[in-house]
Amino acid sequence: MNPTWAAVAAAAAFVWFGMVLAISFLEAPLKFRAPGVTLRIGLGIGRLVFRALNRAEAVLAGVLVVAVAAGGPAAPVVALTVAAVTLLAVQLAAVRPVLNRRSDRVLAGEDVPRSRAHLVYVACESVKAMTLPALGVALMPV
């Protein structure tokens, strides 16, 4: 793969990985443990934070796709790129809308059961958290 495009793609993969770790696995669970943070407040904050994260992820996914496509990648790089971008697409198109509808109801004061969609989102994040560093390493010159 072209070294310049590989470096751009690797940087995008590692920055994306860092953002997923920081928000999904650190900020999200910790905010509900802070004193005075109710479920409604936590959901309101979470919606804002995850909306921003997902936008940043979409930009990084775009950079990654362009860099990988332009760089003449090997098959493993293509497979890992497709996996990461597909996981994000599933989260944005299928899982987030379900979670948003549930959080709308909670924020409106309804008592609603926990959603399995949250577990699907976490599963996607977990697989992304394994895929992105693997992709970054695959993009690095030997």
Rank of each mutant, 00 (worst) to 15 (best):
W5F: 15
A6W: 01
A7G: 12
A11F: 07
A12Q: 01
A12G: 10
A13G: 06
M19Y: 14
M19H: 09
V20M: 13
L21D: 13
F25G: 07
E27I: 14
E27H: 14
A28V: 15
A28Y: 13
A28L: 15
P29C: 11
F32D: 06
P35Y: 01
P35T: 05
P35I: 00
G36Y: 10
V37D: 01
V37H: 00
I41L: 12
L43G: 11
L43C: 12
G44Y: 09
G44E: 05
I45Y: 09
L48G: 12
F50L: 09
R51F: 11
R51D: 10
A52H: 14
A52G: 12
L53P: 10
N54A: 06
R55Y: 07
A56Y: 11
A56S: 15
E57T: 00
E57C: 10
A58F: 07
V59C: 06
L64M: 12
V65H: 08
A67M: 02
V68Y: 05
A69N: 10
A70H: 12
A70Y: 12
G71D: 07
P73R: 09
V77P: 04
V77Y: 01
V78Q: 14
A79T: 04
T81Y: 00
T81E: 00
T81R: 01
A83Q: 02
A84E: 12
V90C: 02
Q91E: 05
Q91P: 01
L92M: 04
L92Y: 03
A93L: 14
V95K: 07
N100L: 08
R101M: 00
R102M: 03
S103F: 03
D104P: 09
V106S: 00
L107C: 10
A108L: 01
A108H: 08
V112Y: 05
R114I: 00
R114G: 04
R116K: 11
H118I: 01
H118F: 13
V120E: 02
V120Q: 00
C124R: 09
E125R: 03
K128V: 02
A129M: 11
L132C: 10
L135V: 00
V137P: 14
A138W: 03
L139P: 13
M140L: 15
M140W: 13
P141D: 13
